[in-house]
Structure formats: C-alpha cells, structure tokens
Design a protein around this nucleic acid. Sequence first.
DNA 1: CTGAAAGCGCTAACAC
DNA 2: GTGTTAGCGCTTTCAG
Lengths: 343, 343
Amino acid sequence: MVTLAEVARHAGVSASTVSYVLSGKRTISLPTRERVERSIRELGYHPNAGARALASSRSNIIALMMPLRTDMYLPVMMEIAIAVATTAREHAHDVLLLTGQEGPDAARRVVGSGLADAMILMDVELEDQRLPLVRVTPRPAVLIGLPSDTTDLTCVDLDFEATGRLCVDHLATLGHRDIAVVGEAAAVYERRTGFAERTVRGVRQRADELGMRVLHRPCDGSYESVAGTLARIFDERPATSGIVVQNEAAIEPLLSLLRQQGRAVPEDISVVAVCPEQVAAGTSVALTSVAIPAQEMGRLAVELVMARAGAAGQGPSAVPPRIELLPPALTVRASTGPAPAAR
Amino acid sequence: MVTLAEVARHAGVSASTVSYVLSGKRTISLPTRERVERSIRELGYHPNAGARALASSRSNIIALMMPLRTDMYLPVMMEIAIAVATTAREHAHDVLLLTGQEGPDAARRVVGSGLADAMILMDVELEDQRLPLVRVTPRPAVLIGLPSDTTDLTCVDLDFEATGRLCVDHLATLGHRDIAVVGEAAAVYERRTGFAERTVRGVRQRADELGMRVLHRPCDGSYESVAGTLARIFDERPATSGIVVQNEAAIEPLLSLLRQQGRAVPEDISVVAVCPEQVAAGTSVALTSVAIPAQEMGRLAVELVMARAGAAGQGPSAVPPRIELLPPALTVRASTGPAPAAR
DNA sequence: CTGAAAGCGCTAACAC
DNA sequence: GTGTTAGCGCTTTCAG
C-alpha cells in the first residue's frame, strides 16, 4: 500500500505539501503541485480513509437510515437512496446504509464512533424513536418526512397537504362534486407516518371550501382489498365521479376493476394518482398524477445536511433548522376528464 | 469525545486491557472485564471507527455496488440491499452504498483507500467492466449475477436455466404443448445481463427434450408493449396455451389483457411467472411462480464474502472461489391448470 | 510558498 | 492475566 510519505519522497517534497495538494487548503506553486500530482498518479496513491478520518475527525460518510416497513413503497425508497448516494458523491461523501433492525441504536453507534459525520433519516414516524438522539447529537441530520414536532429539526418532504388540495382543485375544475380517496393500508395510518394523513387532510380541506363531498377509505394494495374498497365507495356514494389514489400498489388493480365494472376512465370516473412519474406513465390508462419527487427529496436532503456539516463547529446557530416542503406538481394525462353531465 | 484511554483510567487498567475486552482476543479475568464494561457503559464510550481502521487496517465495511440501470426491477434490488445490510450487521460490518455513476472507479477508490474491506457487486453484466479490478484486488468480492467468464470469481445467483426448465416441466405436466415466453425488455438482452438469456435457454432446452414448441418475445413492461407482444404470439401460434413471464412489470397488464380478450386464466391460458413471491401472491389472479429469492441472494453473498475475508491474508487459496446457483422453487397457485382439451 | 513534527485513538506485538 | 509501547497514515499547527 502506497502512503502519503512515499508520494512525498517520490516528488521530493514534504508530507504536508502532499497533504495540502490533496486538500487545497493552502496555495501550492504550480510546479510543485504538478510534480506531486504526477507522483500520485504514477504510484497509484489513494489516501487512507481511516487515517484521514482519525486525523481530521471527519469520515466523509453520510449515514442513510431506512427502517424498511414492509408496507412502504420500495421503489420510492430506492430512488431516494440512489439520489442521496449520487449527490453525496458530488460532495465527496459516501453513503452508509442503515436499516431499521438495530433501531435507534444504529444511529447512536455510527455517530458515536465517528463512522458517519452526518445522517439522513427516512420513513420518519410522527413520534419517531430516533428524534431524541437527533436532537442532542452534534452531527447534522436531516429527516425525509415530517414528525409531529419539528422543533429544531431539518426536514424535507413533499407538501402532501398541498398535494391533496391540488388533486381536489383539478377534479373541481372538471366539474366533479363527489370524490373518494383510496388511501394507504390501515397499517400506514396506525404507524402514523404522517404523509397519508396529510394528503387526506388537504383533500378534505379544499373539498370543504369548494362544497364537495369526500369519502376516504384505507386500502392495502391487494386486488381483493381494492375490489372491496371500491364496492364500499360506490355503495355509499353512487354519485362518486372522481377518485384520488395514494397507494401505488392499488393503482393497476383499481383501473382493472373499473374496466370490468364497465366504468370508463375518464368518461365515467376520473382518477388522480399520487405516485412516481414512472408509474403514472406506464399504466394501462396514463394517469393524471401528482409526482412523488423522490430524486429531489434525496438530493435536497443531502444539500441541506452538507450545508449544516460545513457550518458545524462554528457555534450552535450556524445554519438554522428548516422545514423544506416541496411544492406538488400535477400532470394531466388520460385518466381525468369532465364529470359526467347526467347525475 | 470519550476515548479508550479515558475508559482505561476510569477502570484502573491499561489501554490494551480495554482493547482486549472489546475484541475478546485474549482472556480477561471476570472481575476486570466487568469493571471495564461498567466504565464503558458509564462513560458512554464508542470506539472510534477511524482509529480502529487505521490501527487494524480493517474498516469493517462492505461496499455494495449497484449500477442502477433504469430497466432493472428496483424492488428486487432493494430487497437484496436490505438483506445485505442486515446480514452484514450480524458480522459486525456496515454497508457502503455505491451506485454506478462513478463506474469501476468507485470500486477502485473504496478498496484503494481501505474504506471497504470487501465488496459485493450487483447487476453484473456478461462482460462487466468491474471484473478486471475484482480479479486483481486483494479484497474479497462476491458478484450477484453471472458474467460470461467466471474464472476465479465467487458468484451468487438464482439458477435461471433450471428456472426455465422448471417452468416448462410444470406446463408439460399439465399437458401444454405450445408455450410462449414474454421476456424482458430488449434493452436487457442488449446489455447482456445474462439472466434473461439463461431462463430462455432453460425453457428452450427442456421444451426441446419434451417436444414442445416455444415462442420467445421480448417485452418492456408497458401496457402497449404487452398488448403488442401478446397479439404477435397468438397470431403466430394460435395454439399457445402456456405463457412464461419474466418481466414483473408485464404481469398485471398481461393478466388484464387476457381477461379483456376473453381468455380465461387458467382455463384457456396458463401463466407462470418468474418474480418475487410478494408480487405473485398479490396479483388479480394469484400466480403460479418461481420465486426470485432476493433475500437469500443478499444473505448468501455476505456469508461468502465474509468467509473469504476471514481467511484473507492466509495465502491465496484460503477459500476457493465458488459459483453458488440457488435452486429454483416453483409454487403452484391459481394461474396454471390443465391445457384445454380441444386444440 | 514549504517543512518539521506533534498528535488523532486504537491495535498488537513484546514484555512480565 | 495484565501492562508498555511502537506504530498505523494522515492533518494541522507552528516555524521559517
């Protein structure tokens, strides 16, 4: 293994010079710099991560914690993880993947050991177990999702309330008066992850303002469940002409069932989904949808955590905590249309 | 930050004793051990990862590289990643997540810097760019997937050829004679990722042995694509009564289309899928399927890489390289039945 | 603009 | 069964 000392000898300079060439923390004359860089290349030198971390007490690693509840939509998680990893690299950081199995201890362990010098938490619950730690740890942390008490926390999420309102606005514009929400699995609400409630709240709020009627029913993704939910909806509110779906798994079954029941989309029923763009575009009927901006969320989380990391040590209020709710965007596709005139 | 030296002082022992209590690499008398452990707890001591890595030249980190081609099925990747992270923790290791954006350089960087002391590569192509590095690096590596030349490599994968054969056997037993394979997107074949070809090869091989007829058509997951593929199949081979699907995205559209065309599953058409159990169980018609054992693959990859890591340094042939193909298992559900008598 | 040198916190001989 | 100590490879004052 080639060390910095060897590079220094090879280039005929001191160790510190090599170090500074690498970090750019002090000005180096062009000739020396080039000589050093050449030596680095020729010797195939890679700075040792452990030594660097020890000497600088910065590991250049961001911990990404994702407690993987079975009912979460994996592709979105995955997209976020990828965006986090990609963006982290742009800041010369790597990403350590932590799952939920160890519980809050995992976070304690990685920051306590200095393995990670920042962390990003996914799948945040309203009363998340990790929050106490996040609040006391000196390392910067960003949550993807919104707990109930956000004091002193930096969070990133889609603005789900606005999302709910946006869906209603769109349907209202098309003349729909009775709408239904096919929600997430009951487990999601019980776990109180927040985002599902927030969407429904937004829907209810705007619907009230516009004098529309809303029926909300939870629904796990299975075909049977969707069939049941749909049956109940049309049973209780036969006039329902607009549906908002928030559970990706329920989408294809829903379209399939509507078709079977002879309800044409969008002629008889309009459907708005809250899901990744990719899903919306690939379904049997292209879906009017509000995108879940997984990439942006991942990227933003890293940017925020890095900003706070950069300012770390400069006192407590270097960069103030901040709640960043991404504005929803609705894309009109083929699944929504004017409400049926006859009612 | 509390250090090992502080723990030692607090417990009234030497630094090495604390270190050995932690590592268990030498016998410590019960009283001393307890005293030390108590100090560790009271002081809230966490060994510093960087220092440890530097002194021991082992980071206890496994790099997991997943070049995320857009056409890969994310949930499977995710499941593998989770299994890898979980299993790694059982071996006191953490997982560093690397994406494909940096290319083979990422691998070079993390092993060169000693950031990771082992690696697991996912989404392996037949002529993978990372193979040269893997072959020369002193760090143990395991591939998930099979390149064309496996010399000196340790690989884990589902035995896709056997999977193909198994599907055919099942259909043959039910009396089907004409079968079709709805394959992966053309891009998957072009990229030469291997697994798609291997399945088809297995299908062809067994079909030949049994005198059955096979039609293989690639298909991206979109509804249109599935419709087109299906049309071609029934056009060219009207007698087709069994279908093997290997593209998860195509499954629900396929079932939906068959239904629309008045082809009952399984009365008119039997469908066998190659997909995760979760997918097979949740579709509108529960699918007879061969499971993609994502968890087992992730777990096994870690076990293998750890076995090689443990034996590292003891000379070249400590643990021989090894190809581990998991045997496929077919679960009969509601989507397959006897071939229609009239043909 | 460059060097010398003092650690960073831990591991693993080497001693007893 | 326990203590002493020499590094591991790098960063970062302090000097010049």
